[in-house]
Amino acid sequence: MNYRKKKIKVGFTTGDINGIGIEIFLKVCCKKKILDFFTPILFGSPKLCFFYKKILNMEINNIREIKNFKEVVDYKINVFNIWKEDIKFESIKINHPESGKYPFSSLKTAVKALKEGKIDVLVTAPVNKKSMNFKNFSFFGHTEYLKNVLEGEPLMFMIHDILKIALVTNHLPLKRVSSELSIKKIIKSIKILHQSLIIDFSIEKPKIAVLGCNPHSGDNGLIGNEEKSKIKPAIDNFFQKKGWLIFGPYPSDSFFGNQKYINFDGVLAMYHDQGLIPFKTLTFNQGVNFTAGLSHIRTSPDHGVAYDIAKKGIANENSFEEAIFNAIKIFKNRKEYMKLNSSKLS
């Protein structure tokens, strides 16, 4: 079979057009021989790429506008032109409705292509949730949007070689976390995490740590009772009967302070900052945000739009590059898992 036909098609969203998304996209795609491994398709506008090429003074000669997927060419930066109007990108201000309009249309078109099999995986650039949250986008972020348009139950899963940590709750105010936690929700999260570690990361018998919710995991009920009433029952009454290696709940401070995380394949945190603060401290600019549990693969870098350094040419593209190669690896792992399990059934 022709090698070129087997190359994985990676779709990209533009992210916030005033952020660092296009800069890090171009930086990665310009690396020597990197397009040997995948074929990029950006959903946006060639004009946006040329706008950033000029600002950053980058030597790029392989940007190619396409109008349909039959025009995709390997070893080129394929840009699916979805914005037909003459856009003055330099005049669009941060937090203006216009700055949310374009990244949303990029995301919507890219996800449609993902569902239709026009691209194999999707890598999303960072967005500004405030500018995205206009009348046509009533979601807290990518994870919530993908839950609405793809099959499956999404789980926010931050991944790196040294630490993989998923979240029971995502973008919630801290005061709502306790009321959102339930035995059923924790069980569902562990199921998705367990399955993802097996299928997406080829770990045959995953060992998972579950964190507590309160300081010192509640101190036997002195500080809080979520550990006793919700987290421990979810572990004991269901998973140990299956023979799964699920342990906890652990106090999060000592769990990370004593490096207990190195003994586990995956960690389940109860809320956003409990998981992302240690993850980003340990892996920043190398970690990846992966949405587990969905029918299709989506990854993104572990950082935001970074307006303070945008258009200066100093943004670090490492996490974005890791997002690409993790998406490719997960895609291949899923195919291999399906192949092995279909052969067992036949």
Rank of each mutant, 00 (worst) to 15 (best):
S179M: 12
E153H: 06
I165S: 07
P154V: 00
L197Y: 04
K164R: 14
A166F: 10
E180C: 10
I190D: 03
Q195N: 15
R176A: 14
I208Q: 08
E204T: 08
T169M: 05
K184F: 14
E180R: 09
K184L: 13
K184Q: 11
E204W: 03
I187H: 11
S202L: 11
L167C: 02
K184M: 10
I198F: 03
S179N: 14
I187R: 14
L174I: 15
I192K: 02
V168Y: 08
M158E: 12
S182N: 11
I208Y: 13
H160R: 03
S182H: 09
H194D: 15
S178V: 08
R176V: 13
H160F: 07
N170C: 08
T169Q: 03
L163T: 03
T169N: 05
I199T: 10
I199M: 09
L197A: 02
L181D: 07
I203Y: 10
H160K: 05
G152D: 10
I198T: 09
I190G: 03
I198P: 02
L174W: 06
K205W: 08
S196F: 08
E153K: 10
K188E: 14
K207A: 00
L174G: 06
K188Y: 09
I159K: 15
D161L: 06
I159R: 14
I192N: 04
H194V: 08
I183G: 05
E151I: 05
E151F: 09
E153V: 01
K185A: 01
E151G: 14
H194N: 15
A209N: 05
L181T: 00
H160Y: 09
I183H: 01
K184I: 12
L155T: 01
S196V: 09
I192W: 12
E153Q: 11
I192P: 04
I203R: 11
N170S: 13
K207W: 05
L174D: 05
A166W: 07
H194W: 12
I192F: 10
K175A: 04
I186K: 03
I183A: 05
S182A: 04
L155R: 01
K205L: 06
E153F: 08
E151K: 08
